[in-house]
Design a protein around this nucleic acid. Structure first.
Length: 683
DNA sequence: GAGCACTGC
């Protein structure tokens, strides 16, 4: 039968360390403070938001939901929680929660507000992120990541601890923001005392108000339950400049514009946006060439790259202050649009494009597409120039082209795999996800394929209900459904030790340090080869952790080009998973018999991600017809192509690449997932 | 021979 089935000191620890977080203690990242010589009280009163203080408090008496529009830096995220406490919203043991999409934002905002209120962090003002709950029973203002709030909902579906929930950065429309908004809409109906403040940029304010408003008759506005408030303008004006004609090459244009600014404009650092690492590196080297010739009376150009996969120590250079005779030119990917705020930028250059992840439900493929940015994104980029003084934004496209841009980037929900989201919603009692009120409905095709996958994994039954105990358990595990399934079966298959380790390793990016050139690149390659096995990347990761656990020193990590900070995080995640396994009463066992046990266990969860070697020499999935390739970073890349493999994910860039591979035997698919593979096995 | 950015009891 043929089956087709914290802040590093400059120079400290050098390039080995990867990005962990640009540390929370750099408060300059988030908070504009031009009034630093004033008392804290006076400073607070000078913020643009202060004028709205009474209006906000009054509106919150009348309306259940407030959509608050205002630009970053106006003080929304730091001041509103304090106004609410001062107005008595934190009495009766209730607290005020502020969600942030990123961990650094949650911790640094909490730090800042604790400072302003002159209290110890973790008492009156606290934060909660994964592995770090810095709150106590007196906490009144709590900054938390969106993921944490969602987890809290699982234990307390009506969020009874909170009097007010503030959703920050809603314009980013992350997957979690949208899920939380949908759920809050339901909670608001049941808890009339709860208030929600949605903090956003302008574009979607009306849409969001209408979403939360329960008054459907537009004639009697006085019965509305939601309203919009706007915080006036920005601190400093930004002049926007467009090109006269559209350009052929935006990388060259970025370089030329930077040079032109240096020749004709006053002092001030430049921030340029490009789409990816390649472009950034190219622009940096072109500028570095030019920087060698310093014309008289001109500042020396100091080009600096910044992108996610850049080692931490290199990333930190963009925060260094330049000397008086030079001008910093930071060339960035989208990381500088939201995640990293570089201080003192006067000029912004915007290429007008972005790399956007796009999920195709039909082929179950994630792609990175280069797409024109949205108007909101263009304004966000421009806004990076006017944080400490007035600035200029050079848009490398025509004004007409700007007008033709879409208003906002489609919410993540509309372009992602929804299986994790649907599992969470089911666990929160949303039986019919197709009828759930999303702020923006996702494509029904994506919802259906998510349901299909969850059904195949056994997380939901024939009636579409969460299965008990499998589905319920899967929802409790903070991993993608396919991996959650692996953990659960690992108990029965006697390899939970190994599986938890592998999955903990997979949660962390950049475990391997791969210098891109020179002697170090070769050394790293040789060192990494020590861990590689023909069974694939997942087993290789297991080897890395096992070896690390015996040594656990920075010296060892350096020697083998392993990222020690990443490994420390793996250790934390692993401990957390082991606790969870205990709670779920999954037996903790080690597979002393064979590796086959582990491989089979991986198959029991990852079976929907199987691919076989087609006679044409490329891989195909059993269902789809797309040509698939082994990613060059996989340990299998240099080996003879195995007949059958499982992949962790597929990402389409220049080619469609499979990553995080495991070599399997096809009969395991039929054995472990007969409902999924038996029909196609006839061939 | 390749890498937008985030997140989780």
């Amino acid at each position: 039968m043929n089956i087709k089935p914290k802040f590093l000191a400059p120079g400290d620890n050098s390039w080995q360390e990867d990005k962990v977080d640009i540390d929370a203690h750099v408060s300059t990242q988030f908070v504009y403070n031009g009034n630093h010589s004033l008392s804290i009280d006076l400073q607070r009163k000078r913020l643009p938001i202060y004028k709205l203080r009474n209006h906000i408090i009054y509106s919150l008496e009348k309306y259940q939901t407030l959509v608050l529009v205002g630009e970053t830096g106006c003080g929304k995220s730091t001041q509103i929680p304090q106004y609410l406490v001062e107005a008595g919203w934190a009495s009766d043991d209730k607290i005020i929660g502020i969600t942030e999409p990123r961990r650094v934002a949650a911790t640094s905002l909490a730090n800042r507000v604790a400072d302003e209120r002159n209290c110890i962090l973790g008492t009156d003002v606290g934060y909660a992120i994964r592995f770090d709950d810095c709150t106590d029973n007196t906490t009144k203002i709590k900054y938390l990541t969106e993921g944490i709030l969602l987890r809290e909902m699982m234990g307390d579906p009506l969020l009874t601890n909170y009097s007010v929930i503030i959703l920050d950065e809603v314009h980013e429309r992350t997957m979690l923001t949208d899920i939380i908004m949908g759920l809050l809409k339901k909670i608001l109906r049941k808890r009339k005392s709860l208030r929600v403040i949605v903090s956003s940029a302008t574009v979607d304010a009306e849409e969001l108000r209408d979403f939360f408003n329960t008054n459907q008759s537009s004639k009697s506005r006085d019965k509305d339950t939601a309203t919009i408030l706007s915080v006036a303008g920005r601190l400093y004006p930004i002049e926007i400049l467009y090109t006269v004609e559209s350009l052929a090459n935006y990388v060259n244009a970025v370089v030329e514009t930077a040079i032109k600014i240096n020749e004709s404009e006053g002092p001030g650092d430049i921030l340029a946006f490009l789409t990816g690492m390649d472009e950034v590196d190219r622009a940096v080297s072109l500028l570095a060439e030019h920087a060698k010739i310093v014309k008289e009376g001109q500042l020396k150009l100091m080009p600096l790259p910044i992108y996610g996969s850049l080692p931490n120590s290199e990333q930190l250079k963009v925060f260094w202050k330049t000397s008086n005779d030079s001008r910093k030119v930071v060339i960035a990917t989208n990381i500088a649009e939201t995640s990293i705020t570089i201080p003192n930028i006067t000029y912004v250059i915007d290429c007008g494009f972005v790399k956007l992840p796009w999920f195709d439900a039909e082929t179950q493929t994630n792609s990175l597409i280069i797409a024109p940015i949205s108007k909101a994104s263009a304004d966000q980029r421009a806004g990076r120039a006017g944080r400490t003084r007035s600035g200029k934004a050079y848009r490398l496209y025509t004004e007409q082209a700007f007008k033709e841009l879409i208003d906002a980037t489609p919410p993540e929900m509309q372009r992602s795999d929804l299986a994790p989201a649907v599992l969470q919603l089911k666990a929160l009692g949303i039986d019919n996800v197709l009828r759930f009120s999303f702020p923006s409905s996702p494509p029904s095709k994506s919802l259906l394929s998510a349901l299909e996958l969850l059904y195949a994994l056994g997380a939901i039954n024939d009636n579409g209900e969460l299965s008990n105990p499998l589905g319920l358990m899967m929802a409790e595990i903070p991993l993608d459904p396919v991996f959650a399934k692996c953990i659960i079966t690992s108990g029965e298959m006697g390899c939970s030790e190994e599986i938890t380790t592998i999955l903990a390793m997979m949660q962390v990016q950049n475990v391997f340090i791969r210098p891109n050139s020179g002697q170090a690149a070769i050394k790293a390659r040789i060192a990494h080869r020590m861990f590689e096995v023909e069974e694939g990347d997942l087993l290789t990761l297991l080897n890395v952790y096992t070896a690390y656990e015996k040594n656990k020193t920075n010296h060892w990590c350096q020697k083998y080009f392993i990222n020690s900070k990443a490994m420390k995080r793996v250790t934390e995640i692993r401990i957390q998973m082991r606790k969870l396994i205990k709670k779920l009463q999954i037996p903790m066992k080690s597979c002393s018999v064979t590796v086959e046990g582990i491989l089979k266990c991986i198959t029991s969860g990852l079976f929907p991600h199987a691919a076989y070697l087609h006679y044409s020499g490329v891989y195909k999935t059993v269902r789809g017809n797309k040509d698939l390739y082994i990613h060059p970073n996989s340990c299998l890349y240099t080996l003879e192509q195995p007949q059958w493999i499982l992949f962790g994910e597929i990402l389409q860039t220049n080619k469609t690449y499979m990553r995080e591979l495991t070599v399997i035997k096809p009969e395991w698919l039929v054995e472990l997932a007969p409902h999924f593979y038996q029909k196609t096995a006839i061939d």
